[in-house]
Design a protein around this nucleic acid. Structure first.
Lengths: 342, 342
DNA sequence: CTGAAAGCGCTTACAG
DNA sequence: CTGAAAGCGCTTACAG
């Protein structure tokens, strides 16, 4: 019946199903969506016909009609780093369980990030957005609000969206506490900055470092605090700087596991033994840390992803939710820390 | 003018833009899409109005009309493993550069996988599908064909879709060759099987092992070939079995880096030194391998992801493409291999 | 419980 | 170069 044959065979439509089932389009639609107010027999009949044709309702058309997309966007700066990858995997899992698709927007570089907020490619494409460990400038937040969808942040946000995160200050305290209890007094810190991050919240981990030392009555030494770019290379650089001191520390608290891996390599190559010559602790408990016998403070990336996704689902369903959720961290003592040699 | 006010304020529509620009809907549509046949002045006027309202064309409506979704699905069993995460990151990057969204379908368990192929949640939602290192049974392939979209496989496929992959046999040969040249004769292999994989292609890596030994005139020893489940734990188990032999090998070729990490840990804990007591080589060159000083055969996950995405783009654009693309692998000699002790 | 009809927000052949 | 109109494949208030 179509006057445009080239469009005619895009596949079976609800109209076809309705016709074959001997009901109206409206009833077929209700039967397929499980809306109430259709007799069980009719529903069965319609669905049987649909089944026979391997028919599924077109999400595009359905979404257009009802005004939702059935998709959630995840905005992130990385996919291939353990924390992000694990959080993403869990997010996808939660969303899929609720029938929602996950679309990934990865802004690798500052340029990508800039263009994302200028062009807003997610506009009109998602029902909600999960912002993964991406601090937002006020301008970026303003742009994001143009999406006009629910937003939840996981870790390190600067805007005022509902969020899920660890308590970085507490995690830092746990790490420092462990070193102090072991008897260390000369404790260094290798802090990390993301060279690509335009904005970053107050660094709670380094704050924990200074506070813990102060609380223990230990004087701060400028040389013992180094700040390096993110990643194993940064950790290596930081450790090299510490080893070059006239009097190196006996222990070091490192911003995160990734950095610690680089630091451990430097120690090994320098012929130093861990933990005898240097205790090393960091934060994350990334997958490799167990293999490397690294003492660390565990944060659960998957849990954070899960809770963030669930928060977003609650917002979309207009159910109550917590604006701020802190997930627990805990010390995982392994072989890279011990009491100082003397 | 709408009779349904609750639907009225979903935002600015093309009709609003057209009205304000003083043109018809049709012309506004053409101006926004950049279709030819609109005067430059009109185009400018329409776009200016759109800009002023932060308007973008609704992908849902546009897609419904033109019959495409602007989305590509990625089907995978993992997100949080380096190979997958890197490939995915690159895929997203390529697709985003072409204005396409990436939606992830991660089937973690055999049940997830089964349900994916039964329910086909990607149906009517994507213009194409990238299957990441997921071997398909004939039945699964049959189901997938119901999606009626372009499909490209990256690594380890069993169906006959266009694909991108390394040459596993060649990679294995490179690894074995390295050990043989160093003078090893007693070479073991730790092979991996994915306990979740319903189907798996002929194992080309272990084939390379036997062939290389045969070519070198070395007799195969059953004890020297062990097969374990995937992951570091599997590698540890495999190495333990090899160490328990009356006469352990002097070198071992391991299916992939992940397994090698576990094997290295077992060696270290057993007080054995690498490479003095045992040479270790594997395939992948995952991010941690450099830190662990692991000799390996590098495969480029990002390149595979990129080429797979580009192949899919070519298919969608009806441009010529290669049905099979093999990406190169190369030996990366590091500190975990050396000539046998005596 | 069921149907006719309007509407979701676009695109595009057709006719100027 | 531009517009009126049909169509994309659904959903849902309205009226039985």
């Amino acid at each position: 019946m179509t006057t445009k044959p080239e469009r005619a065979d895009r596949g079976v439509t609800l109209a076809d199903i309705a016709r074959e089932a001997g009901v109206s389009l409206a009833t077929a639609s209700r039967a397929m969506s499980g809306a109430r107010g259709v007799s069980a027999a009719t529903t069965r009949k319609v669905r049987a016909v649909a089944e026979r044709h391997s028919y599924v309702v077109s999400p595009e058309a359905s979404g257009l009609s009802r005004g939702s997309t059935g998709r959630i966007g995840v905005l992130t700066r990385h996919i291939a780093r353990p924390f992000y990858a694990e959080a993403l995997e869990e997010i996808e899992s939660v969303l899929a369980d609720h029938g929602l698709d996950t679309v990934v927007y990865c802004v690798r570089t500052p340029e990508d990030q800039h263009s994302f907020f200028e062009r807003l490619p997610a506009r009109r494409k998602v029902d909600g957005l999960l912002v993964l460990a991406l601090p937002l400038s006020p301008h970026e937040k303003e742009r994001l609000d143009l999406l006009d969808v629910a937003v939840v942040a996981a870790s390190g946000q600067t805007a005022d969206y509902p969020y899920v995160s660890i308590d970085d200050a507490e995690a830092g305290r746990q790490a420092m506490d462990h070193l102090l209890r072991l008897g260390h007094r000369r404790i260094a810190m290798i802090d990390a900055i993301d060279p690509n991050a335009s904005e970053w919240p107050i660094e709670l981990r380094s704050l924990a470092y200074t506070r813990s030392l102060e609380a223990a009555g230990i004087e701060l030494e400028e040389d013992l605090f180094v700040r390096v770019p993110w990643g194993a290379e940064g950790g290596a650089e930081g450790m090299e700087r510490l080893l070059s001191l006239r009097e190196p520390p006996t222990a070091v608290f490192i911003h995160s596991d990734d950095l610690a891996y680089g630091a451990l390599r430097v120690l090994r190559r320098a012929g130093l033994e861990v933990p005898r010559d240097m205790s090393v602790i960091s934060i994350d408990d990334a997958p490799m840390s167990e293999l490397l016998d690294l003492t660390t403070v565990r944060q659960d990336a998957r849990l954070q992803g899960r809770l963030a996704a669930e928060t977003l689902l609650a917002m979309l369903a207009d159910e109550p939710y917590q604006r701020a959720r802190l997930t627990p961290t805990r010390l995982v003592p392994r072989g890279s820390t011990a009491a100082p040699a003397r």
